[in-house]
Design a binder for these strands. Sequence first.
DNA 1: TAGATTGTTAATCGATTAACAATC
DNA 2: TAGATTGTTAATCGATTAACAATC
Lengths: 216, 216
Amino acid sequence: MGNKALNKKALSDALARRLPAYYRHVCIMLAEGKQTVTSGELAKRVGNTSAQVRQDFFTCGGVENYHPDTLKNWLSDLLGIKEEHHMVVVGAGNLGRAIISFKDFNNDGFFIDAVFDNNLMLDGMQVCGIPVLNVATLDEYLAANRTDIVVIATPANVAEDILDKAIRGGVKGVWNFAPVDLRSNEAIEVQNVHLSDSLLTLSFRINEKEHWKSEN
Amino acid sequence: MGNKALNKKALSDALARRLPAYYRHVCIMLAEGKQTVTSGELAKRVGNTSAQVRQDFFTCGGVENYHPDTLKNWLSDLLGIKEEHHMVVVGAGNLGRAIISFKDFNNDGFFIDAVFDNNLMLDGMQVCGIPVLNVATLDEYLAANRTDIVVIATPANVAEDILDKAIRGGVKGVWNFAPVDLRSNEAIEVQNVHLSDSLLTLSFRINEKEHWKSEN
DNA sequence: TAGATTGTTAATCGATTAACAATC
DNA sequence: TAGATTGTTAATCGATTAACAATC
């Protein structure tokens, strides 16, 4: 079942970012009861060209056929969401709480097992049904409980420290919301979210368009 | 003061995403009291090469000198954050509340003026100090109050509808957190965030690495 | 001055698009 | 069968990297 293409070298970031969109739209089409998906139809939905869809699928090793269930299954395999993912969230502030209660990803097998915070008042309480633990016990927790992903929802200045703990704890990935650029390495995969950056990019595009318009 | 480069054509997405990181790190270096920034030092911080930093700055029209204040100023201009941005959030659920209380972007001149929700129980109340209004009055509000950016923090099925209202209201940009791919057009700039997609990309990278390791 | 750094052009590299024979 | 769609290779396009004279 292993994909030969995966052995070569890491797929490009652009492609790695398109895969979830393919998955999302295939799920929608499946829910709509579509009997078949074409590269053209999928492309239209994700805002792509059919050539790119076919090329992407080819790069990822190819899929047997374009029935929505086959595709969904194949993409699930690729995205690694056939197995459950156990996560902990570090930081029980607004952002942490939003992530906890953001259950869009629950159906894909992601589970939040615990929340860690440095506010001892919260120790032993629950936030949105998830137990809050003292962040001082994170190392200990990770040693005792298989955890795949650590979500960092702390201020910037402690993010690096949490990353180190995650690495020591043998965690596979970090989903980082703190405004620092944590780096992936052989030990761990990191996905930085940077909400503010995304707002600034929007602002840049607005600004760009205005200059463009006024000077044409 | 207008940048010639901006007249040509829209800058690449890759570059548009790097600009906020440059800005963020220049601000940090300024706060650290650095007297000067070099393309090499900045590159190291953003995880880049010095050649790319110089090329990016060149593409954006060039900056006079590398003093941190000059750079910060120049980047602010580019990103359009010299002026205030007035925003409203649609959706007062967990995500909406998280965005409201996420004040990382306040210092860059972004202000949230109101929150809209379809839950009439909330009408007239406040969420994190921001007044909640009935979403049925959004059109009316946008007609009366200059608003630059609409933040969509609603379920997927109404996102398109809010986008239309934003366009009718003459808003410049939409920051979309609903899991649908809204598209930019001449009327409006859209930035889709897709938190779930980003988690799936992380999962993909973890999966990719595991296959890779085990088969080498 | 010498060493380092920049601005800018040219070369390289990789990603997207086009093309088209094979398949559905 | 004919038309549409795929898988795959080749061509194009654009972004990153390298190079280096000019400047700090």
